[in-house]
Simulated assay, not measured.
Amino acid sequence: MHRKLARVAVRRGPFSCVFSGVLALAAAAADRPAHAADWYTGAEPNGAQDAWIVSVDTAATVSSQGAQFAGATATAAPAGNLLTSGLRLRADAVLGSYRAGTGLGQQAEAAAMVGYGWVWPEAVLSAFVGLTVRRNDLPGIEASVRNAGGFKAALDLYARPTPGTMVHATGTYASTFNAYYGRVRGGVAVLGGFLGPEAAVLGDDYYRQWRIGAHWSGLQVGALQFGLAAGYLHDQARKGGLYTTVDMRAGF
Results as ranks from 00 to 15, higher is better:
G96W: 00
L138H: 08
M1G: 07
R135H: 11
T245W: 07
L224F: 11
G86R: 01
A6I: 02
A189N: 03
F15M: 10
T41R: 15
A250N: 06
R99L: 13
A72M: 10
F128M: 02
D156L: 12
A159E: 03
G105A: 06
T176G: 01
Q68F: 11
A159S: 05
A76E: 13
D57K: 10
F19H: 04
Q220D: 07
T132G: 03
Y243Q: 11
K4N: 14
N147M: 08
L242A: 10
D92C: 00
R211A: 12
G21Y: 10
G231Y: 01
P161V: 12
G171E: 06
T102N: 04
P45I: 00
G130T: 00
G186P: 01
M113W: 05
A100W: 03
F19N: 08
P45N: 03
Q49P: 11
P78D: 01
A24Q: 04
A148M: 01
A72H: 01
G251V: 00
G66M: 06
Q107K: 04
V129A: 06
Q65M: 13
V119D: 10
Y181R: 13
Y206A: 13
P14A: 06
P121Q: 14
G149I: 00
Q236A: 10
E142I: 15
G218M: 01
W118V: 15
A200Y: 07
R135P: 11
D235C: 00
G241W: 03
S16T: 07
A28M: 08
K152N: 10
A159R: 06
A26M: 00
G86C: 09
G140V: 15
A76D: 05
G187M: 05
Y158Q: 03
V54N: 07
Q49C: 09
V201L: 05
R238S: 05
E142P: 15
D137N: 05
D50T: 12
A148E: 08
V62N: 07
V124W: 12
Y173R: 08
L138T: 13
I53V: 11
G203Q: 05
A100E: 07
R208L: 09
A179R: 06
G140I: 15
A43I: 02
A28Q: 09
V8T: 14
N178A: 15
W120C: 08
S97G: 10
D57P: 05
A127I: 11
R12H: 05
Y206G: 09
N147S: 10
G203K: 06
P139Y: 04
F226L: 02
F252S: 01
V54K: 09
T84F: 14
W216E: 09
M166Q: 11
A110V: 09
D137W: 12
P139A: 08
K239G: 13
G186E: 02
G222I: 00
D38T: 15
V221D: 10
M166I: 13
Q49T: 08
L23V: 04
R135I: 11
A159V: 11
D92R: 12
D205G: 07
K152I: 15
E122K: 15
